[in-house]
Write a protein that binds this DNA or RNA. Structure first.
Length: 414
RNA sequence: GUGGCUGUAGCUCAACUGGCAGAGCGUCGGACUGUGGAUCCGAAUGUUGCGGGUUCAAGCCCCGCCAGCCACCCCA
């Protein structure tokens, strides 16, 4: 026996669930299209520099989670760890500003992060998301949040919670950072090791440490430090959400781990998933395009985790049952095999069909049809070939009728 | 990257204080030679995750590795 080759840690083969993925993806794509977004497909690898600059050198993603390698031409390549930076790179590269703003894109595809896998967290995982490029207005934030929520509703998900926050802009954030530093300074000796380094590297993250959550409660609130423009923006965002009847909770502790966020950040959580309970994350990134070498282009977007959403759907038992082929064509004897093939060729233009390819006897063909969840079987025997009247059997109630070939499609489709 | 738990047939799991690797489900076939999802009968399938060690003897004990789960970290 040859040595077994197994899948790479943190990757998954999607087999029985493939139809669920197809179903979920189609729902999402349709929602995005209904809100005027069009698809963009970017490469799954990019120049490493894109993520260094886009996502931020100080982030965990860039510091320890990227799949980076050198290709044969000596270029430094990274498998994309997230979808926004590549979309913005494409936006700039194709001079899309000249096509008029805003530009609205959606995407679905694999992302890669080198992390310790666990339920709801993989090294190759899949995200769908949208980017609304070019509008600085709160209405764009709300539109984005609306699409996020509609996408979850479209697959029937219910028990999720929207949390929003504002992280301010380059004007107000430094003041807030300073205030946080001051607040935490005397507490520093009591903080956990991670928080010691966070204090130096990124004070904002002290807020979502679970061990030192106590201190975070009475820490200064970002919302008290927002500049007038950010305050107005956040107020308008809330007002619009209210007018749409979208429920939310303002949670000053959500500080997204990507450096490019400005002002609005939001998260949709599905609490019963356990530690990995964020199913959608997003926000505004007003400086990213500029950071990547384009003209200032304020934008907003979100990304949702396919694996996590499917876990949530399984939890709510909201997944439609598997549908097999419409018609399984049964050969009564080996003499009818050729006829069955001909029927399959003809009927497959209108219906999903299947036939036995294992030389099974009639009884086993029925068993097989049943196992594959075929809705109907079509029996092709000596009589049928002679008379041109085929026996159509409804597999859910067992009833049979004799029909000429052109009636079969009609009956099965009805 | 850190800590804890786990790994036996395709799946779920048995196998005493080390002593011949088993069951159910599923698969395939038959009972029923033109009819499935019920029942009964039969059959096939394992280097016990991988590699080493201790022992007369290891699925079980020890070490290393790999993988999965859980928590941390972080995030979708």
């Amino acid at each position: 026996m040859k040595i077994m080759i197994k899948k790479i840690k943190g990757t998954n083969d999607i087999v029985e669930d493939a139809y669920i993925w197809e179903w979920v993806e189609n729902k999402f794509k349709n929602v995005a299209k209904r809100f005027g977004f069009s698809e963009i497909r970017t490469p799954i690898f990019e120049a490493t520099e894109l993520f260094d600059r886009g996502v931020g050198k100080e982030t965990d993603i860039v510091q320890k989670e990227m799949y980076t390698f050198e290709d044969k031409g000596g270029r430094t390549i990274t498998l994309r760890p997230e979808g926004t930076a590549p979309v913005m790179r494409a936006f700039i590269e194709h001079g899309m500003t000249s096509k008029g703003l805003p530009q609205k894109f959606f995407y679905v595809g694999p992302m890669f992060r080198y992390e310790r896998p666990q339920a709801g967290r993989l090294r190759q995982f899949h995200q769908y998301g949208i980017e609304l490029i070019g509008s600085p207005l709160p209405i764009a934030d709300v539109y984005t949040i609306l699409v996020a929520i509609e996408s979850l509703k479209a697959v029937g998900l219910e028990n999720f919670k929207l949390k929003i926050n504002s992280t301010g802009c380059e004007k107000c954030r430094p003041k807030y950072r300073e205030a946080l530093r001051e607040y935490y300074k005397p507490l520093l000796p009591k903080l956990c090791d991670d928080c010691q380094t966070r204090y130096e590297k990124n004070v904002l993250r002290l807020l979502d440490c679970k061990r030192d959550a106590e201190y975070a409660k009475s820490a200064p609130n970002i919302l008290d430090y927002l500049c007038d423009d950010c305050k107005t923006h956040f107020g308008e965002l809330k007002r619009l959400l209210d007018s749409l009847g979208i429920e939310y909770e303002v949670d000053p502790s959500i500080v997204r781990g990507l450096d490019y966020y400005t002002r609005t950040v939001f998260e949709i959580k599905y609490p019963s998933l356990g530690a990995q309970d964020a199913i959608i994350g997003g926000g505004r990134y007003d400086n990213l395009v500029e950071e990547l070498g384009g003209a200032p282009t304020p934008s907003v977007g979100f990304a949702g985790g396919m694996e996590r959403i499917i876990l949530a759907l399984k939890n709510e038992k909201k997944i439609p049952p598997f549908r097999g082929v419409d018609l399984y064509i049964v050969a009564v004897g080996d003499e009818q095999r050729a006829e069955v093939l001909k029927m399959a060729e003809k009927l497959s233009s209108e219906l999903k069909v299947d036939v036995d390819l294992m030389g099974r006897k009639i009884k086993s063909q029925f068993k097989n049809a049943s196992k594959e969840m075929a809705r109907y079987t079509l029996i092709v025997g000596e009589d049928e070939v002679k008379t041109g009247l085929y026996t159509l059997k409804n597999m859910s109630d067992g009833t049979q009728t004799k029909l000429p070939i052109d009636e079969i499609v009609k009956t099965v489709k009805s």
